[in-house]
Write a protein that binds this DNA or RNA. Structure first.
Lengths: 331, 331
DNA sequence: CTGTTTGCTGCACAGCCGTGCAGACCGCGT
DNA sequence: ACGCGGTCTGCACGGCTGTGCAGCAAACAG
């Protein structure tokens, strides 16, 4: 099945193909009468300019790759959605590459994107190898990385360290003494940074921190980590969870399996503020990350990079704000 | 910033552009020696075939549009992820159009997709106007609709009616008598179908059904609907919720605001089986929909349609199976 | 009425690629 | 040495588009 081409429209309208092209080009010089004829013929045939061919000519495809692992989970789902929306509003075409963490898969995705001359790639997760950045650079493809301190690309970072320190200080100010932190073994850089910053801040204040890990940074990870924390050793009275999903898992174990009260026996703080954090069953105190704000920064970096390819790498920071709910009240 | 072109590779390798093209074309005839030279030059320059131009030539872009409203919410997040994964595996390039429900926005998205010669469009939500189908048809663009009985397109349907009838029968068989159903005012066809089928089945068995609606089919909608059900009138002892999110909201209101027990005072059944349904706080009995299975059917329909454009519209059904958890035990 | 300006139009080319076709070259048989 | 078959190669074209340039007609000024 063939799409309608400008040639066909030109024939029907009785003009040259150039006239058709000019009709659909902003600011080109066409007589109103011919323009009318062309538009009518186009309408009749259902013609739309072939943006692919236009892109080949102008050397810009308007495609932007969004690379994410498990884009359906937790905060990443919201970030992905916000990003695609922002890209569409900008006139770009978001290509969602839902890939595994494997290096090969990532490189295959990159080949696909470079093959289609994607104008830029935004990376939400996974740990791209050095060759990834090198190839992108050589093809002049701007790269924006979200949530990872990657010096070879523009990046948007959450204030993980600041927030985590804040969490530790607030726990301590509220009189909590037996601190713990829950992270995961398959930690993304963000998760690891939160965990480390919390531990460092607690140590700096003279407190020890028990550390527990789930397999992944999800609900099941929270279950597992909380069970190890409460099954033996000194039970914590305040736990900082590296993201909300971990916190939900932990909270459920604490309440349902150990019969303890949140926040009386154990205070909890999460990270991300996904909508579930406000659900009545949880009421999780957490650090709010605004996906729309992060997406806006990413798009801004993209714009800037495209206008000015040789500028030094930039880094945007979005500082999360704590939102107090039932799982830990303001001291 | 320019991408590397085949011309440049040809020059570096000291061959003609045709040789380069043939090197990267499956099944073309190139001498091993030249192939080697070309590959080496390509590697050195970081060359990748321009799939856009290739697409212009072959009249196929490999782009597939995925149109969804709020792709970050509930089951739709999982469906979107599964679909993009399936498309990538098939060698297609998923373009995620995250659009509002507005007719204009939908048509703008369609123009974008047709302009880029997307080979097909999969629609996950929204109610496209008739002109949408007409334009797609005229441009020979296959359309797959998920979860809506749209006669002008191939479609994948969940067995909403079967499942909802099953829910009613199971409630009744368990001795529940005061039935209710929770839907939403901004109902998608799926939600409405579930609601109606449940009511019809209950009526057929001689039972009345109280109906409550949230604004949207989400957690907040569940809160609002449950409050109206329990604030006045005869309190139900069994509620069928048109999706899991509604069920979570309803369950939280029933337990936390009215101090009732689920499942002792009120039994609940949801729909979708999102991961949260298995969380300890909820343990929701629900109908499992497998996003991967639905995605696979959608891709299958795509394949079939592309091979055989004139075949009559097809309809695939995926029947959900009930998963029993704490919120309502098997009678 | 004539010269000049203005506004459009069509031609041709550029930007990528795949591929039919004819010709070059190599190896081989006689 | 010469013809022949087969493999590869380069040329040129086709598939879409945007745009510089030259030419043409109309409008306008004198």
């Amino acid at each position: 099945m063939r799409f309608v081409s400008a040639e066909q429209v030109a024939q029907l309208a009785g003009v040259s193909r150039s006239a058709v092209s000019r009709t659909f080009t902003e600011g080109a010089s066409v007589a109103p009468a011919t323009r009318e004829k062309v538009l009518k013929a186009a309408e009749e045939l259902g013609y739309h300019v072939n943006d692919l061919a236009r892109g080949v000519l102008a050397n810009q495809s308007r495609l932007v790759g969004v690379v994410a692992t498990k884009p359906e989970i937790g905060f990443r789902a919201h970030l992905t959605a916000a990003l695609t929306k922002a890209l569409i509003r900008r006139g770009s075409i978001p290509v969602l590459i839902n890939t595994g963490e494997t290096e090969e898969e990532l490189l295959a995705a990159q080949k696909m994107l470079i093959g289609h001359r994607a104008e830029a790639t935004v990376i939400l997760s996974g740990s791209p190898p050095a060759s990834f950045f090198e190839l992108a650079q050589r093809n002049g493809q701007p790269l924006v990385v979200i949530g990872r301190a990657e010096p070879d690309a523009d990046r948007v970072l959450a204030g993980n360290a600041e927030a985590s320190r804040d969490a530790a200080d607030t726990f301590i100010a509220a009189g909590r003494r037996r601190l713990a932190v829950i992270g995961s073994r398959s930690a993304t850089p963000s998760i690891a940074e939160r965990e480390n910053a919390f531990v460092a801040a607690a140590h700096a204040a003279g407190f020890d921190v028990r550390i527990a890990h789930g397999r992944d940074s999800d609900y099941d990870g929270g279950l597992v980590a909380a069970r190890t924390l409460f099954a033996e050793g000194e039970r914590p009275d305040a736990i900082f969870c590296a993201n909300d999903l971990l916190a939900f898992g932990a909270m459920d174990v604490i309440r349902q399996e150990f019969g303890l009260s949140v926040p009386d026996d154990v205070a909890l703080i999460g990270f991300d503020d996904v909508p579930e954090a406000a659900w009545l069953s949880y009421g999780l105190t957490t650090f709010r990350q605004d996906p729309a704000a992060i997406a806006a920064r990413a798009v801004m970096l993209l714009d800037r990079r495209q206008q000015n390819p040789d500028e030094p790498r930039a880094c945007e920071r979005v500082i999360p704000q704590i939102v107090f709910r039932k799982s830990f009240s303001k001291p």
